[in-house]
Amino acid sequence: MDNRIFSQLRRWVREGIVFILLALAVMWGVDQYRKPAIPASFSATPMQSIDGKLYDFTALSQERPLLIYVWATWCSICRFTTPSVDKLANEGGNVVSIALRSGDDAKLERWVEKKQLTVPVINDERGALSQQWQVSVTPTLVVVSKGQVVSTTTGWTSYWGMKIRMWWAGV
């Protein structure tokens, strides 16, 4: 009886591992398909946030990895991801966000205040930056280390998924 239970448990563990590996392979494949084609010169010009501060992605990513979070106020998935990004920023994470086609600065600033977000927000009001970067999915998360894109992912990502990507980029 004990042998049979152990054998069944071992089979479930083996099938669970195979399932997890297949799920990871599918997620990786989807990310590769939807991955933005960020140009090499993406960080050549500092960008201004809605509060007037300038952000230089290359400089910000020299000491520790930078998470660039591309999102939109109208994005339903972003409603679940944005709080995690903001939590990461509140904990001292190196994070900058880019709001895609979410209105003018005043409208976006009201939305940010209403949601009590503390993450810096750069407004891509007309989508020119996202078009240049070929971002076709929101949310998109880009990890930059020493001025180079080291990781991109699209769609929902957990807080721990972001932390792991940032940690991995810094290793």
Rank of each mutant, 00 (worst) to 15 (best):
D2I: 15
D2G: 15
R4T: 15
R4S: 14
L9C: 07
R10N: 13
R10W: 13
W12E: 11
V13P: 07
I17N: 08
V18S: 06
L22R: 05
L24V: 13
L24I: 13
D31A: 13
Q32Y: 09
R34A: 15
R34E: 15
I38L: 01
A40C: 06
F42H: 10
A44Y: 02
Q48A: 11
I50A: 00
Y55G: 00
F57L: 14
A59N: 10
A59V: 14
E63C: 08
R64G: 04
I68F: 07
Y69V: 04
V70R: 01
A72V: 03
W74G: 00
C75E: 04
C78G: 01
T82R: 02
S84F: 14
V85Y: 09
D86F: 04
K87C: 00
N90V: 04
E91S: 09
E91H: 02
E91L: 09
S97N: 13
A99K: 02
A99T: 01
L100M: 09
R101Q: 13
G103V: 06
D104I: 02
T118Y: 07
P120K: 08
I122V: 14
N123L: 11
D124R: 05
D124G: 05
L129D: 01
Q131F: 10
Q132E: 15
W133L: 00
V135I: 07
V137N: 03
P139A: 00
V142D: 03
V142S: 03
V142K: 04
V143N: 01
S145D: 13
G147L: 05
V149D: 01
T154R: 01
Y159D: 05
G161H: 05
G161C: 08
M162P: 07
M162Y: 07
M166V: 10
W168T: 11
